[in-house]
Each structure stands twice: as structure tokens, then as C-alpha cells.
Design a binder for these strands. Structure first.
Ligand SMILES: [Zn+2]
Ligand SMILES: [Zn+2]
Ligand SMILES: [Zn+2]
Ligand SMILES: [Zn+2]
Lengths: 160, 160
DNA sequence: GTTTCATATGTTATGATATAACATTACATC
DNA sequence: GATGTAATGTTATATCATAACATATGAAAC
């Protein structure tokens, strides 16, 4: 009913460190506001909505309005530091922000966690199928909802 | 800059006919309101939003409010007669409503048309990748945005 | 053919997500 | 320190979706 246990502070600090490095290299300004939003997004492995971010931001940074959050999210999206989960109107940190990619997301309907895959065979199959259709892909949305490994096991125990 | 030319009235009448047949078989009530919404959705091969449907419905059926449209859409979704395009908050008719399926959508950013694929290799790759992750899939969202064949060709002519 | 009940629709209000438009501030460069 | 650009503040509003309750419709039972 939850993601595997781990030292999540490391997830957050790794993500913030990688983001700082990437932005420095690119000449992009990871301001404290933007870093704050990124940190809020990274507090969980479940996608978080813009207004939930807004609430937290207000408590921690003082004043903030919807555009504050959406601008920061736009920046983070442009830098590839977060992804938008279209089917949830929500956002999640990207664990591999260094290179551009369109990942596949596994969204658990029970515990809410989202895992990101970058399966080569899936990508190859999509490329082949779209090429055959004469379609030139610019962006991919692949979101699979269901039960994660942990929740599947938990459910099996209850049923058994 | 547009989908291939065809006799679109046939698309609409085929879709409505198939829907009537399916609903009769299933004992589902395809009321005139629901059929009207389905017809509006089928007027184009581009996804249409709920409020755009609402406008048209008001002109043609008289009174209507958001719940009117969303209820009809919920019914049509449940019957597999339409799909929701998550990345656009919009809806499109399903050309193969008889069997349940999760298709792949090719969304043209230029002309707006959406095409539905049901590529076996893509589906197999997704199944393999998710099984390896121990994830039990319940629903798939695969939406690819880019340029359709027609728009790609048109763009090439302009560039050349 | 009326009663009965479930389903469908009407109606009002509101919640949830996202952006437009313009003012102000911060920061790098000169 | 003047200048210009990018970032943020602020207010208002657009857009998408549902809750809650009233009314109407239509099939089945009587
Ligand atoms: Zn973690
Ligand atoms: Zn990623
Ligand atoms: Zn379909
Ligand atoms: Zn096109």
C-alpha cells in the first residue's frame, strides 16, 4: 500500500543537487522560489497538483498565487526537472533530468505513487508504429494506471 | 493542414448506427440526448471539449447545462463509444467500439485531428515492460502529439 | 391503465485547474 | 548608478468538472 521504504531525504537532496548542477551548466536560473517548488514536488513519489503545491508554498514562503506556482512549474518542465502527469493534472519529479526523454509512467491507483520507466522496446514500438502512420512525434504521453508491485502483493495477501 | 478528404457523413452515420446496435445488444439506453452528444463528437476527427459540445447542444436541443453534457459523456465512455484524450481534456469518437480496448492516439498539433491506433507491438511492449516492473495495468493512456502525415507533407512543401 | 420504481434529465451552485494582463522587483551589464 | 531583461507580485477571470437536489420519463408490475 506504499512504495518501497528508502531514505527519501536522499531522493530529495539528490534531485535538488542535480537540478542546481544542470541549471548552472545551462545558464538557467534556479531561483529559491523555483527550487522551493521543486523541493515540494520531490517530497513524495506521488504526483502533486498545482494547488497543493500552492498551499505548501504559502506556508513556507509567505505570499503566493496560482501564477507563482504555474510559472515555477513551467520553468521546471522546460528544464526537464519535472514531468506533468496529464491524466491527473499533477506533477512529479524526474529522476533522470540530464537528458531529454519522454518516459512511461506507472501510476498506482491504490498508494498513489508514480514510477517512471524508459523502456527501449516500448519506445521502439511507438517509433515504428507512428512512422508507419507517417506521423512525426514531438511529445509522448504514456501513463499506465493500475496496481504497483507492493499494492498487488498486499492485495493478494488480503484475498488469500 | 487537414485530414484526408472523405465522405464524413458516412463516418457519422456508421458511428451512430454501430452505437445504436451495440447499446440495443447490451440493454443500454442510447437516448436522443446521448445520441445527440455522440453525433456532435463525431462531427469532426478532432477531439472536442465538453463546453464546446455544450454550446452546440444548446443550439440544437434547447436547454442544457454542464452536467447534461458530462453525464452523456460518462455514458458514452462507459459504453466505449468515445475516448477521453487526457492531454487535451477533450473527447473523440471511437471507430471500433465493439470490443474494449485502450488505443494509442496520434494528435496533430497543426490540424488538430486525432487518429487511433491499436498497434499490437506497442501493446505487447507495454505489457512486457509493466509485467517486469510487477505492475498490474488497469488502464492505459498513450497520446502522441506531433504532425500527422498530411501536415508533415504540407510543411515539407513550404520548407522546400 | 394506473401504480411503482429505477433511470434519466433539469437546475443551481460550487469546486478545481489554469491563464491573461499589468505592476513591481531583482539582477546582470554597461 | 543607469539601463534593460527576466522574475515575481497581484488581481481578475477563463476553463474544466462535479455535488446536490428537483423533476420527468419510461419500463414493469399490478
Ligand atoms: Zn524517495
Ligand atoms: Zn523523466
Ligand atoms: Zn477506440
Ligand atoms: Zn495535421
Amino acid at each position: 500500500m506504499a512504495a518501497t521504504r528508502h531514505d527519501h531525504r536522499r531522493c530529495v537532496s539528490n534531485a535538488l543537487g542535480a537540478a542546481a548542477l544542470l541549471c548552472r551548466r545551462r545558464g538557467a536560473r534556479l531561483t529559491s522560489l523555483r527550487a522551493g517548488v521543486l523541493e515540494i514536488v520531490w517530497r513524495g513519489h506521488a504526483p502533486i497538483g498545482a494547488y497543493a503545491i500552492l498551499e505548501r508554498l504559502r506556508r513556507e514562503h509567505g505570499q503566493a498565487a496560482p501564477p507563482t506556482v504555474y510559472r515555477a512549474l513551467d520553468f521546471l518542465l522546460a528544464q526537464g526537472l519535472i514531468h506533468r502527469i496529464e491524466s491527473m493534472n499533477a506533477f512529479i519529479g524526474c529522476p533522470r533530468p540530464a537528458e531529454a526523454h519522454g518516459g512511461q509512467f506507472l501510476l498506482c491507483t491504490l498508494c498513489g505513487t508514480a514510477a517512471e520507466l524508459a523502456d527501449k522496446r516500448v519506445e521502439a514500438a511507438l517509433t515504428t508504429a507512428t512512422a508507419r502512420a507517417g506521423f512525426r512525434v514531438e511529445a509522448r504521453v504514456v501513463e499506465l494506471r493500475g496496481l504497483c508491485r507492493v499494492c498487488t502483493a498486499a492485495e493478494a495477501r488480503h484475498a488469500g
